[in-house]
Structure formats: structure tokens, C-alpha cells
Computed example of a mutant assay.
Amino acid sequence: MAPPSVTRDALAVAVTANLPVILWGAPGTGKTSAVTALGAAAGLPVEVVVGSIREPSDFSGLPVLRDGGTWFAPPRWAERLAAGGGGLLFLDELTTAPPAVQAAMLRVVLERTVGDLTLPDEVRIVAAANPPDQAADGWDLSAPLANRLIHLDWTVSAEDVAEGFAGGFPVPEFQLKAPAGTADARALVGAFLRVRPELVLAVPDSPDRAGRGWPSPRSWEMAARAVAACEHLGAGEPVLAELVLGAVGEAAGFELLSWRRNLDLPDPQTLLNDPRAPLPERLDRLHALLGAVVAYVRSDGTTDTWERAWAVVARVARTAPDVAATAARSLARSRPEGATLPETMLELAPVLRSAGLLR
């Protein structure tokens, strides 16, 4: 289990990247006060919604007649967040919310929708829960709701509590600007899943395991955004591990982190500038490298870079045509306006046909 300081930093990174996150911890350990302090430090209005005292209509909206039709009126907390253009929605005591209330929360967490009101994109979502055996009339978290959140274990140490009483409890510093580099991180995760396709979806077979992080396309997307945020903010490996494991679970998360550490890929810009730069031999590394090249090309957006990328694809096609075909498909979709097809593409006719780009 990570030290409390790592968990606090992971929470700050998740809020920065606008990733929905849930804190798991025993009652009385300061989860609520930490989240409200975090919101205050960031200048974000905090709306606390306690699951045990809410009804499904508090999230799905209350049906009312309006202009001859039915309108699902949002609650006041949602209207305040919408009027403010952003804020922090804190869903407290989630495991005291019965299944019907948890089901109503799904659209709030994933789509930022409350009744017929759509919350601004700048609304951050943090939840907190006690383990079901420690919660009053506790319920397991439903698998669909659990899979929409990054799970962090909230712990306290005697030393941290003593220092907090003496000098105040620390609040992590963070920025609200959206992290860059998400395309690179998604390419990295996509390359990993090509190597381990059985990890794309692994629904747990027990309610307690299904109520925490587990692999699905949705949770892998959250893991990719967490990787991008950590790299952008300079967060350490322990913070990255907390977020990735919290998104997709320990088994799949540890595999991704280990694979990422051992990639040792050349820089995409170096490869585009030097046609003789060495290429990795392993197929998983080639997948990751070409994914990074395509992400760089999309970010750069220039015709010259797009055309030079085809030379890299052509080199890979000589030894790994299947890998090249995947990259060719992505590059073709990223063609800048006015770009002409480079002569290099003539060498790629078989690859382009297999990618569905030539008849």
C-alpha cells in the first residue's frame, strides 16, 4: 500500500487530468476534509453529495412538465456547478448508496449529465467510500460504476497525523491546465494491448473484485490519460503506479508498467530526421514506436513531417508488414490538407492493400 503522501499526490494528478477518482479508506481518516481542502486550494467550488441520503432522482433528475413535455429537472447542487462553469463534485459515502442510487450515478460520473442538465467539462469528480464491511448498511460498489473510477487506497500514518495536528495537514499543489501528450500515452497503451490482447477486457468474477479497478477499454483510456498527466506534471513512478493500478487493477497494471519501463524506444523526432536510425527488433517495441511516430505527426500537423513518416513505415514494412499496416491506416487518417502522397508509398502497395487503403 502506498504511503499517504503518494496517494495525496495521485489524487492531485487525477483532479488535474479531470479523471474521476475514488478514495477508499476507513471512517474518520480525513478523506472528506482532504478533498474539500484540495478544492479550496485550487479555488474550485466544492459540492458535497452524500450517497446515503440521496434518491435516484437526485442524479437522474425529477420529472416535471415543461412546455408541454417532460423535463428532468436537475438538483440544486448540479445547477450551482453549471452556473459556476466548473468545480469539484464530491460524491461521499458511495458504499452507503443502494444499487438504484449507484445506477443513477453512472451518467453523472461518465457523461457529466444530471437529468436534462449537462455539467461543464471543467467539473472534476472525486468520490469517497468506506469498505462495505466498515460502512453503515454497506453495499458493494456496482461493477459499472467501479469501472468509471480510478481507485486509490486512502491511508494515514501516526507520523502524518501528529505533524498535521502540529503544523497543518499538507495539500498537494497542482495546476488545472489540461495535461498534454495524451496521444502518445494512448499509442503506448494501444501497443501494449496488441501484445496482451487478453487484457483488453477482464471482468472480475466476484462482487468484491468487481467493485474495484479492472481492465476494460474505458479503464485503459483512463490509464492512458493518467500516464500522460504524470509525464506532463513530472510525477514520480510511485504516483504513476497508484493511478494505473487504480484504473485497471494490480495484475494488468503491473504488466503495463513493467513493459513501459523496458521499452527503451528512440525519440520519434530523431527517427523522422535520420532515415538510418536503428529500429527495434521486437514487434511490441515496433508497435509502440510507430504509435509514437503517428502521435508526433498528428501533433506536428505539417505536410513535411507527415511525408517523412511514410519512410519510417516503409522501413518497418520490410520486416514487419502487419505492424506497418496498422501505422499506415493511422497515418492515412492524419493526412494534412494539401499533402501529396510521397514516392515512398509506392513501395508500400501490398501493405496499403492489407490495411484497406488500396483496392
Rank of each mutant, 00 (worst) to 15 (best):
V6H: 07
T16H: 14
P20C: 10
V21W: 06
T29N: 01
L38P: 01
G51A: 08
S52W: 00
F59Q: 04
L62I: 13
G69H: 07
A83K: 13
D92K: 09
L94V: 12
T95S: 15
T96P: 00
T96A: 15
P98R: 07
L106W: 10
E122Q: 09
V123H: 04
A127E: 04
N130R: 09
N147R: 03
D153Q: 13
S157F: 03
S157R: 14
D160W: 13
V161L: 15
E163L: 15
G164E: 11
F169R: 13
P172M: 05
L176C: 04
A178F: 00
G190N: 11
V200K: 14
D205F: 03
R218N: 05
M222E: 00
A228Y: 09
E231Q: 12
G234Y: 02
L243G: 04
E255T: 13
E255H: 11
L263M: 09
L265G: 12
T270Y: 07
D274T: 12
L279G: 12
R285Y: 00
V294I: 02
T303W: 00
T305W: 01
R315K: 10
D322N: 10
A327G: 12
A327H: 07
A328G: 11
S330H: 11
A332T: 14
A349C: 00
P350C: 05
G356H: 06
G356A: 08
R359C: 00
